[in-house]
Each structure stands twice: as structure tokens, then as C-alpha cells.
Design a binder for these strands. Structure first.
Length: 472
RNA sequence: GCUUCCUUAGCUCAGCCGGUUAGAGCAUCUGACUGUUAAUCAGAGGGUCCCUGGUUCGAGCCCAGGAGGGAGCGCCA
């Protein structure tokens, strides 16, 4: 077969191949090159897996000069024989016949040189400054493959359970969704915007003829779709203009929001629990090598923790019961626990990591600390809210049964100063054929954070956006 | 936004009580070595000590302001 006819093989396929002693073509990026003047070894990675393929260059076939540009980070195409490895450490290797350098990487300026024998490489913080190159590291390759697998598993889960994927708008005309500060979307000139008679900016002149923002949630539109399709979900970008500086917040993140007609709160909890367990199980089954690497490198309890979540039921209890546990806890808290105030993250951590030692679903929060659309309990004091709390992450899911009674919903909106006239279309769902329904929001990066065991949410999204950072 | 810590070579970090010419490991470069495995061995090059100002005979070190980053908290997913 002439070399031109050879199809490129992926590194992952070659490493697992038992079809040896054949011509192969591989292309990828050089991780390291080592050897002597007689034989050189090139570790080649193409992103198809964590491992590298060993390419052997016999110096009787290659001049030292021709290998000079094969440095860490360079891209190459290799044609050669796939053979059983002569050395230890790998089953197969490629005896190179021909190596073409596709792109060089100047060793003096390419920042991702191999790690030293002291094991100290470039820190995760330093890698954030070169986020355009960090996918080439073992860590970010593993994280991005796991991130992909989880996104795929989400679509697969919902598809298999009769949910429809709906696309809710990114630009929204209402700022009444109540989930935090919003980013304004405008085409008005920032220097001299048109003004109304009273001097304020005249948004009637703006692109949409009104003030518009980036969405903070697709939930309200998701509810509209659920009132026709039954079970739906959204999976899209979400924007919060909060000045949040933590390892668990981003200004731009991806959120999964299922919304189900005819689901009450227990149905909602059942779905959330099965959903999360299925996703973690999927990652364990399909990302074993990448997870093992992250386990060995960063977090020796990662695999045990993931398996535990899959194997054990989540602990369900009401907010009121949680407050009782916290009040009698021997642990000293910085903030006092009082019925009616929201739990601090130290309280949530105690419940999850110390008291129950498993994921917790807290329900029936006081109505005054939750959103207007949550269904009021019969006692009139609490609402049918649920927060799923995970170890190390805190709140990974927030959801509720929605208030389906028009009168009660309007009363809650009035109480909480939510402008009902702007949400006339939302209220129409309660006006025409209203049904009990529920839903929740899963922070996708928080899921990736949990599954990868990474410590900072900025390291589980390719190009993180947070206060003072929109590079790349 | 608040609290707190940090910023010294490409990277990870030392740097004593304020005292001569700024230190290590890794990386890079050069050389050696017939199958390496984070190769090994020998040598070399590499510095705006984050910035600005101040104190001092003398500042990487002390003081003030600024910038950037980490961790914790709040907001939440």
C-alpha cells in the first residue's frame, strides 16, 4: 500500500490494537524526546487518550539533524511499523520509517516543557495565564475528556428517559428572574446614548426596543415548554454578573435545567438522585484512565468518593430537621444557626462531610429565603424547595416544586415585589391548563468539579470568565 | 464586596538581623552514552527580586500607595 493511502490512526486505537506488524500513520504533538546517538524515543500524544505512543527513531535511518526540530510541543506526522515493544513500559510502539515535522515549537519560548524529577510542574494557577495551551497538559486533557463524557451522558440520560432538549433564549427581555445580577446587552453607543426627556437612557432606541440582558436561568422558559412537552431540559450557558470570587463560582457557566409536568417534590428528588448517580457511573465506566490519573496526581480519595456516591442513597431531610441537628452539634460554628436564616456553607459542610458523610438533599426551606415561584407548603411557612449538597462542592443542584396555583403565585410575586406585568406570559401557564410540576438546576461545572476532584471551578472549563478575567 | 496570605530565572521555590558580585532543583543549550521510560552523566547560558514612591551610609528584605494572584466568606449553580 503506498503511504498516501494510509489512513491516520489515533494513538488510543494503536495502543489498544492487537493487529501488529503493519504500516501505520499517526499525527500528534511531541511530549518528550530522549535517547542517544543511536536511537531516539518520541512520546506522542494526539488527545485521543491520556497515554502517549512511543515512536522509535533508529539513527541509522534518521540523521540527528533531521530530528532537531522534534522538540516538546512540536507537531509531527509519523509513518512506520506498529510492533510489539522491545522495551518495558508499553505493549506496542511504532518503528518510524518517516517523520514529518508539521509545526515546530521553539524550546526557548514554548512554556509547557516537561516536568522535572522533583515532580513540580507548572502550577494550576500559572496554567490559567496560558489557558490557550493548557489543554496540552495531562491534567487538562483528562479534565476536558471527562467534561465531554459528562455532557454526552446528560443528553443520553434524558433521551433515554423521555425528555426533550429545548433551547431557551440567551438574551432575555426580563430582569425579573431573580437569580442575581445580570449582564446588560445593548448596541447603544456607550459615550452618548440617546436620552429621554427626564435624562435617563432611552432603551426604546436600543436594538430590541427595551432593556435586555444575558440570561441567568432558562427555567421560566423551560416551564413553558414542559407545559406542552411534558418533560424537557435545557443545557446552555448562563451568566451572572455577581462579583463572586470563590473556587465554585463563574460569571459564565453551563447549567442543566430539567422541568417536568406532573412531578411533585419527591419525584423531583428521585430524578435528581438517579440522574447524578447515573452521570458519575458513566464517568467511572468511560473515563477510567483519566480519572485514575487525577486520583493519583491530585486526590487519593477521588475514586472512592465517586464510587460511594454511586453506591449509596442520598440522605433526605427537611431544613427544619437540619437546623435541629446543627443546633445540637458539638461543632462550633462561626455563624449561629437559626430557623429562618439560610444555612452557611460551614453548616452545609458539617451535614454532608461530618454528620451524614454522604450527599444530602435538604427540603422545605423557609419561604422568605427562596424564590417566588416555589410551591408554598400547607403550613404557609415553608416552600417545596430542594438543594442537593455534595462533599467538597456544596450546592450542586437547586430545585423545587413550582407553585401552580395562579392566585397563590400572584400573591407571592406581590409580596416579593416581582413585577407581574413583565411576566404575563409566565402567569399564562397557570391561567391555562396549569398542572403540578417541578424542576431543578444543575451547575455543570460543579458536576465536573466533583467528578474530576479538581479544587477550583476555573480549572474545569476551558476559558473561565470571572471578575477581571475575560482573556482568550 | 469583605478577611487573609502571596508576587525572586521559562517553571517550582530558598534567600538568615537590612550588609560585598542574587541561590537551588527542574527546564533550555552544548557534549558524552547502543533500547530510553519524569532517561542518566558533565558543562554552559539565563534576573526590571511585580510597579511607584519613601526610610537608610546601604533595601529582594523595612514603610506607604498601586497592580496581579491564591485561600476563606458572602451572592448562588
Amino acid at each position: 500500500m503506498p503511504p498516501e493511502a494510509l489512513r491516520r490512526s489515533r494513538v488510543n486505537d494503536l495502543l489498544t490494537s492487537t493487529d501488529l506488524n503493519r504500516d501505520v500513520l499517526v499525527k500528534g504533538w511531541v511530549r518528550t524526546r530522549r535517547g542517544n546517538k543511536y536511537v531516539q524515543f518520541i512520546a506522542l500524544n494526539d488527545g485521543s487518550c491520556l497515554a502517549t505512543l512511543q515512536v522509535v527513531a533508529d539513527l541509522s535511518k534518521f540523521s540527528e539533524e533531521s530530528l532537531k526540530d522534534i522538540t516538546t510541543g512540536a507537531s509531527v506526522a509519523v509513518r512506520g511499523q506498529l510492533v510489539a515493544s522491545q522495551g518495558k513500559g508499553q505493549a506496542v510502539e511504532v518503528q518510524a520509517e518517516e517523520i514529518t515535522v508539521l509545526g515546530t515549537a521553539d524550546p526557548e519560548t514554548y512554556p509547557l516543557q516537561k516536568r522535572g524529577s522533583d515532580q513540580k510542574g507548572i502550577s494550576l494557577e500559572a496554567l490559567r495565564d496560558i489557558a490557550h495551551l493548557r489543554p496540552r497538559t495531562n491534567t487538562f486533557g483528562a479534565v476536558l475528556r471527562i467534561r465531554h463524557a459528562l455532557a454526552f451522558a446528560i443528553h443520553q440520560y434524558f433521551n433515554e428517559h423521555g425528555f426533550y432538549y429545548v433551547h431557551t433564549p440567551i438574551i432575555t427581555g426580563s430582569d425579573a428572574e431573580g437569580a442575581g445580577q445580570m449582564f446588560r446587552v445593548t448596541t447603544l453607543p456607550p459615550e452618548h446614548p440617546p436620552r429621554t426627556a427626564d435624562g435617563s437612557v432611552d432603551f426604546a432606541e436600543d436594538f430590541f426596543g427595551k432593556q435586555t440582558n444575558l440570561t441567568v436561568s432558562g427555567q421560566l422558559e423551560g416551564e413553558l415548554a414542559a407545559m406542552a412537552l411534558g418533560q424537557v431540559y435545557t443545557f446552555g450557558p448562563t451568566f451572572r454578573a455577581e462579583n463572586s470570587n470563590t473556587a465554585r463560582h463563574l460569571a459564565e457557566f453551563w447549567m442543566v435545567e430539567p422541568e417536568m409536568a406532573f412531578y411533585d417534590l419527591p419525584d423531583n428528588m428521585d430524578l435528581a438522585e438517579d440522574f447524578l448517580q447515573s452521570l458519575v457511573r458513566y464517568a467511572l465506566q468511560h473515563c477510567a484512565a483519566d480519572l485514575q490519573f487525577l486520583h493519583d496526581t491530585y486526590d487519593k480519595e477521588l475514586l472512592g468518593r465517586l464510587q460511594f456516591v454511586v453506591d449509596n442513597q442520598f440522605q433526605r431531610l427537611t431544613y427544619t430537621e437540619a437546623v435541629e441537628i446543627l443546633k445540637t452539634a458539638k461543632q462550633k460554628f462561626e455563624f449561629p444557626v437559626d430557623w429562618g436564616t439560610d444555612l452557611q456553607s460551614e453548616h452545609e459542610r458539617y451535614l454532608v462531610e461530618k454528620h451524614f458523610k454522604k450527599p444530602v438533599i435538604l427540603t422545605n426551606y423557609p419561604k422568605d429565603i427562596k424564590a417566588f415561584y416555589m410551591k408554598l407548603d400547607d403550613d404557609g411557612r415553608t416552600v417545596r424547595a430542594m438543594d442537593v449538597l455534595f462533599p467538597g462542592i456544596g450546592e450542586i443542584i437547586g430545585g423545587s416544586q413550582r407553585e401552580e396555583d395562579l392566585g397563590k403565585l400572584e400573591a407571592r410575586m406581590a409580596e416579593m415585589h416581582v413585577p407581574a406585568d413583565e411576566l404575563w406570559w409566565y402567569l399564562d401557564t397557570r391561567r391555562f391548563g396549569t398542572v403540578p410540576h417541578s424542576g431543578f438546576g444543575l451547575g455543570f461545572e460543579r458536576l465536573v468539579l466533583f467528578v474530576t476532584g479538581m479544587g477550583n471551578i476555573r480549572d474545569v472549563i476551558p476559558f473561565p470568565r470571572y471578575p477581571k478575567k475575560a482573556e482568550f
